[in-house]
Design a protein around this nucleic acid. Structure first.
Length: 491
RNA sequence: GGUCUCUUGGCCGAGGGGUUAGGCAGCGGUCUGCAAAACCGUUUACGGCGGUUCAAAUCCGCCAGAGACCUCCA
């Protein structure tokens, strides 16, 4: 019997109990990156958010098929100016590369940085360019059902007709009349019957180098179609969860919803989930604002906005400290605080094997564990879960300090609890900095020195003992005296 | 201009009508030959003004400020 899980559904604007269509199977679709530039902070937020969801669903016993697409075609750029050019194509033209070369390069980069962030790989990672036929099939169905029309080789979705029959705007909470009154007059849209109609297929002009044959023209698919067709193909006409950044709610997901509804006659998705944005100094991080930080810059510190480098796990931890529906503002001070907090958590976990059980317990592990489940089940409340984990750290440190005691059973339970929630569910792991204490020979050598130091201390020759500690410190080895003797670690 | 959201202690951030969030930083203490780490304490904060209520940071109204979407975006 799986635990209850409540998720905030953008469509209904409420937290709803999660009930999969076909338990124990769960279908999860998340909008992945458009691979035309280096992955940045904004890519990390949905990746981390839905990674935790993926991990938790599996932990609860569901068999999850997680689909995260790669957009490698079809997103127009600079639509306002009426000079739509495919982003990947533009990059390819500027760099004189084969478009697929650009795509492959940035996919590799994306995977590399997602790995560093501890993001699990999705079950399927379909490419839009690999599903042109499927997208064309959907267009055909939409035309046949009378919800799209062909003009000069391009196909447009008839939004007015759709709105009359199904109602448009439920997801983003806006009505079409409002939008009509507030939509700017865009150039180059004379082909559309109605300003809000959107392209399903666009005829390629002579400058386009990415194009495919179709019934309508040599061209390329519209913006929103890939998610409709790939979601349908791999998860079925209706599936459980669709996720993405909240900037995609309108128009991307709204249009996707409309297309799919026309094709199948019913809504495609049960639960729509959207993560909030990253801000830099209170402003949304956006290409146009020129304030975005790539993940590489973050991990190396090479960006004017950064005082220092921050590790992938620090970034992950920092994002988990805020609820996914809240904006996260990045600042050096906040990241430094997160770094210290993560350090404390990891140190606590590393001490677990050193705990010695007593006959009785003064700590309540069962309640702690129960609260942790409650937190995650309440719409993935990771900040509260982290609070629970820090309570676990307090217990660990207190047992070491002999201020609390723990029996064997509770110790096993605490160990399992801390590792499961920190490593398996939040995906936080100790970072390999290449300076670990794993080197057996080094450990022996340092221990030899520590023994010398102990002997000096025993004869109260503190000058000698402090000298050894100082010399080791200059090599980056920190010595700490505990009740159970001296220990050391690399800084 | 339209739609919507937010405003919590030095900083970051949960919560959400009465009872400790948590992390970071600072300060005081314990431990220690010293140091580091750890532990304990730090006497409680919710934009302003009204209202509802026995009780409001939490609900309602107004005001101020910030942000998001309306256009590619994660």
């Amino acid at each position: 019997m799986p635990r209850e899980l409540f998720l905030y559904n953008t469509l209904t604007r409420t937290k709803e109990k999660f009930e999969p269509l076909n338990p124990p199977h769960v279908g999860l679709y998340v909008c992945g990156p458009t691979v035309y530039s280096d992955p940045h902070l904004g890519h990390a937020r949905p990746a981390v958010t839905f990674d935790v969801l993926f991990r938790y669903l599996k932990h609860l016993g569901y068999k999850v098929r997680y689909v995260r697409n790669i957009t490698d075609v079809g997103h127009l750029e600079d639509e306002v100016a009426g000079e739509g050019e495919d982003r990947i194509q533009k990059k390819a033209r500027l760099e004189q590369l084969e478009p697929m070369e650009v795509v492959q390069h940035y996919i590799n980069r994306y995977h590399h940085f997602m790995d560093m962030l501890g993001i699990l790989q999705p079950s399927i990672e379909p490419h839009a360019s690999g599903h042109i036929i499927e997208q064309q099939q959907l267009i055909k169905i939409i035309i046949d059902k009378g919800f799209a029309y062909v003009v000069n080789g391009s196909v447009y979705f008839d939004l007015k007709k759709y709105n009359d029959q199904f109602g448009y705007g439920a997801l983003s909470g806006r009505n079409i009349e409002d939008m009509l009154n507030n939509t700017r007059e865009l150039e180059g849209q004379d082909e559309k019957r109605y300003p809000l109609d959107f392209a399903l297929w666009k005829k390629a002009d002579s400058t386009h180098i990415m194009h495919w044959p179709s019934l309508w023209s040599e061209g390329f698919p519209g913006w929103h179609l890939e998610c409709s067709s790939m979601g349908m193909k791999y998860l079925g006409e209706q599936f459980d969860i669709h996720g993405g950044g909240m900037d995609l709610i309108f128009p991307h997901h709204e249009c996707e919803l409309a297309q799919s509804t026309v094709v199948t006659g019913r809504p495609p998705v049960r639960y729509w989930m959207h993560n909030n944005m990253i801000t830099i100094n209170g402003q949304k991080m956006a290409r146009s604002k020129n304030n975005f930080i790539t993940l590489e810059e973050l991990f190396t510190g090479k960006n004017a906005l950064l005082e220092k480098a921050f590790s992938p796990m620090t970034i992950r931890f920092y994002m988990l400290q805020a609820h996914y529906t809240s904006p996260v503002d990045f600042s050096n001070d906040a990241l430094k605080a997160a770094e210290q907090g993560l350090n404390r958590l990891m140190k606590g976990l590393s001490l677990l094997p050193k705990l010695k059980p007593s006959a009785s317990s003064t700590v309540d592990v069962i309640t702690l564990r129960e609260n942790a489940y409650k937190a995650l089940s309440d719409d993935l409340n990771c900040p509260v879960l982290l609070g629970n984990l820090f309570e676990g750290v307090r217990i660990i440190n207190s047992v070491i300090d002999r201020k609390e005691t723990i029996n064997k059973e509770d110790l096993e339970s605490l160990t399992e609890f801390m590792r499961t929630f920190t490593h398996d569910l939040l995906g936080l792991a100790p970072e390999e900095n290449g300076r670990s204490n794993d080197n057996e020979l080094l450990d022996k050598v340092v221990k030899l020195l520590l023994q010398q130091r102990q002997e000096a201390k025993a004869r109260k020759d503190y000058a000698a003992s402090d000298h050894i500690r100082k010399q080791l410190a200059s090599l980056g080895i920190q010595v700490m005296d505990t009740k159970d003797g001296a220990v050391w670690e690399m800084e």
